[in-house]
Design a protein around this nucleic acid. Sequence first.
RNA 1: GGGCCGGUGGUGAAACUGGUAUACACGCAGGUUUUAGGAACCUGUCCCGCAAGGGGUGAAGGUUCGAGUCCUUUCCGGCCCACCA
Length: 735
Amino acid sequence: MAEGKYDHQKSEEKWARIWQEKDLYLAVDGDKKKKFYLLVEFPYPSGAGLHVGHARSWLAMDAYARKKRMEGYNVLYPMGWDAFGLPAENYALKTGVHPSQVVPKNIATFRKQCQALGLSFDWSREIDTTDPQYYKWTQWIFVQLFKKGLAYQAEVPVNWCPACKTNLADEEVLANGTHERCGKPTQRRPQKQWLLKITAYADKLLEGLGTVDYSEDVKRQQINWIGKKEGMKIRFDDVEVFTTRPDTLAGATFVAIPAEQSNQQGDKTKWGEFTGKYVTNPLTKKKIPVWRANYVTAQYGSGAIMGVPAHDLRDLEFATKYEIEIVEMEPDPGLWGKIEMEGWGFKAVSYHLHDWVFSRQHYWGEPIPIVHCSKCGPVMVPESQLPVELPYLEKYEPSGTGGSPLVKAEEWVKTKCPKCGGQAKRETDTMPNWAGSNWYFIRYLDNKNERKLASKGKMKYWLPVDMYQGGAEHITLHLLYSRFIYRFLHEIGVVPTAEPYMKRRTHGIVLGADGRKMSKSFGNVINPDEIVRKYGADTLRLYEMFMGPFGQTVAWSDTAVEGIYRFLKRVWRLAQSSKFKVQSSSEAKRRAARLVTKIGTDIEALKFNTMVAAAMEYVNWWQEHQGKVGQDVMEDFILGLAPMAPFLAEELWHKLGHKDSVHMQPWPEYDARLVADERKIMVVQVNGKVRDRLENGPDVQQRARQSDKVKKYLGGAKYRTIYVPGKIINFVCLT
RNA sequence: GGGCCGGUGGUGAAACUGGUAUACACGCAGGUUUUAGGAACCUGUCCCGCAAGGGGUGAAGGUUCGAGUCCUUUCCGGCCCACCA
């Protein structure tokens, strides 16, 4: 074995190239092996390049994918680009470079970075949501929704900045109601928008949660977001209100309907105006006033509420401010039945979830495949004419009227009605960022199919996704939206199952070394390229897995990275200096077996930090007992190392004389007896305090009683014995 | 206001269904080696105590032979949603 320093740069570049050339990580459609579809959220390819936060979850899942492959699974671990969206458009507006030029450049950077990290993605399946051959199918899904009446237009309040004359996404409006870029106050004004009827699926999305393995907090948040509430609709003359507390009807002293302008986020002052109208409380028969109030949400329930100041704090605040009568009462559960019997109202269900606004007035998105005809109204573009390609616009600043920048593509807008052939105009709104990311995991299965979203056979083989790993910030919107779209596709016979993801787990955020979010303005951004150059990809990989529990937010530490670097150098040095001609001792065999087994179970449980710690513990032992490690044990160690540090493992594997890749080897399995700790130490306590430690054995209780230390503390007193085999003996004095 | 997740050494953190609290690493201190720097290696490192021993997982109670882990109350921090009736 050649002596020398480990040149991580040379070695990693070599193996990355060889793996690519040999197509080591391709997933095989329809293979006889058991399939495993491992999905990670695909990124928006920003100009800043790959973030160590992306890298953290992909690297951990890469270890997962590699181990699954070694275990004999046909693993699909794909990557793609969610490249439409506001950031690209804003960046382009600032720099004057067209998004269609920026995006491919950024994608190339991301792909290169991923390969340098040794991520074992199947690059033959790469997708890009801005590719017309991709968004053709995003539009196709919209057309299917439209056909089923699940896509419709309605007047919806949107954020409008009068100073910039542009519509804003919610994210662009700060908590105080001002525009994040110009700082001027924004308004909400109604505008005709496309909506998707996700509410029609509210119950199905709730029920579906019972069939999948999501962590409890993820489930809980989905349930809360759907927010199913059972209540009643009650008529006060011609005004119908929704309430979850019909039992407080006696205290209803006013009715409130939404004000024209509700408050901006964060503003909690309550205000309103009297409409001049009175209605009758069906129970008390009293005339009560109807007010417009800014705290009434139009989307919720029927839009109107009954004000019960004696029972509800918000109603109380409003009633006090406007001197509305407050009537004390006891809630009466019997009213649920009485209201129904008297015909004043009926049981009704309300959801927090509301229909999904699917229009954006931006340039860089998928055009909505609709044509507006003066005779036929909105008409869908026939499937044969998809995709409706986004026209190339030199200037794509906001139109200034609240319309999309596409209004200015006059030639593109002017078209013929697909139904009657008359003059018509294209829809100029584009789809939101969610559109392309709703269904992307289906396209990985068959990314070049020109005739279908994906072939039936491939979908049947690969779906559903076995494990979906992503950020906590996506567990309400993205997860719910994509479940909705998938379920819809299932109902129209496109996809084979009702739920898309069998298992969902989330990861934590990586903060800067100062504990703040990484951001250019704080100067705390860690560039993965630099880490890879200085310490190597394996160091970055191990560090990102070791830095803390996978699901937890963690801060970067430069010195801890160096610790990992030292560890890997030590592994290399030990491998160089150890003479593997020796016979492995039985202890060496047992330790290696135990390590590899632990690596396997830790990966499965997503406990990557303790996995790395176990490897370190093993290497500490190895360093002290080099003479006991023979080639067989060394190979076991390298196989265990392969998922986490694939480059170093490959290098060492070849140094031992192997010609094929370590990543194509079967995952070692061991006799349970070898892995089990035979020489277990039993703890002996007196009155709950540890007084002795004895090796386990059939006579351990006997020996414990005879132990001098135990005798000393028992002092001849009467006692009883708690004996938990394999764990503990506790002698408790009877007082 | 609602929901979710946390609180363990100087730091990041371990501790499987209640059973040796602080694994692994960072940092720090001392040492060996080196022309020097760096690197590597060794020793120590929860607190009090020379020791025997005692205390200790945000705080206070409780259950238990035994609690970081379970229950009650409470304090603090982070994230998400927020006038949702």
